[in-house]
Design a protein around this nucleic acid. Structure first.
Lengths: 126, 126
DNA sequence: TATAATAATAGTAACAATTATCGTTATTGA
DNA sequence: TCAATAACGATAATTGTTACTATTATTATA
């Protein structure tokens, strides 16, 4: 179902997600919010994250293991650290033509694209 | 643990995966192989797929839901059909410089990259 | 402002995907 | 041929996520 009524919980989830620039999993978000809202339910976090990513208000990112969420809905790229499994933003300029060009190699239509770099973050290199 | 001894099961998994050009999940692979090897175990399929993707013999692809596997270990791109959730190969020429260029936007080192197009395949458009 | 309709919640059970365990079997090097 | 052990099948356990249900909160309207 789509979002119609507001709730304190959803507002808090969006707030928290937009304030942080890591890309937390549902559980990480839940644990952070649980301190301020002690009877928040993990199911509520999942339900809202799904509604919001369905709307396009936030992004869901699957890279193996638990899904990550990103409060920045504008297309941009990510790097996954193979060691710590953290996801980072990569401010690489968006490849504006890639979807148009890719049509020639695809049987169907393209609506978006995602690029994920895999590597090792500085924290894990030292 | 790394691959040391051979097994009929692993050979069959590699064979099947390289013969097909869809990108089956562990369970799809298991069901296909179960016909030829009736006492194959799903755990064996998972264990081997993980060992082989750790080696770089095959690729594991996470796009939400069950992981997909690809017998082609050379870097290439994919499209996910948002309707049927099938994964397709996209023969878009590999962007040779993208990792080198992305280093400027990353705190760490980059070892690989993946590009996934999201769209709707022809089967689902009609 | 009170009320009625119902979206959203908390808590929990169920489910799906994957990994771990463990006793047995198969592979391989000596 | 045999001993060491990787790999197996069967199944239990774990993890991540979704579904269910009774209760609470939000919101449009009277």
């Amino acid at each position: 179902m789509a979002v119609t009524k507001r709730s304190k919980q959803r507002d808090a989830i969006i707030d928290e997600l937009c304030q942080r620039h890591d890309h937390p999993t549902a559980e990480e978000l839940y644990l952070a919010l649980k301190m301020k809202m002690p009877n928040l339910s993990l199911g509520t976090v999942y339900r809202n994250l799904n509604m919001l990513s369905d709307d396009g208000t936030i992004q869901k990112i699957s890279v193996g293991g638990a899904d990550h969420f990103d409060g920045n809905a504008n297309n941009h790229y990510h790097m996954l650290c193979a060691e710590c499994k953290r996801l980072y933003d990569v401010a690489y300029p968006v490849l504006e033509d890639i979807e148009k060009n890719a049509v020639n190699f695809v049987d169907g239509k393209i609506t978006s694209h995602m690029i994920t770099f895999i590597g090792v973050c500085n924290g894990c290199l030292h």
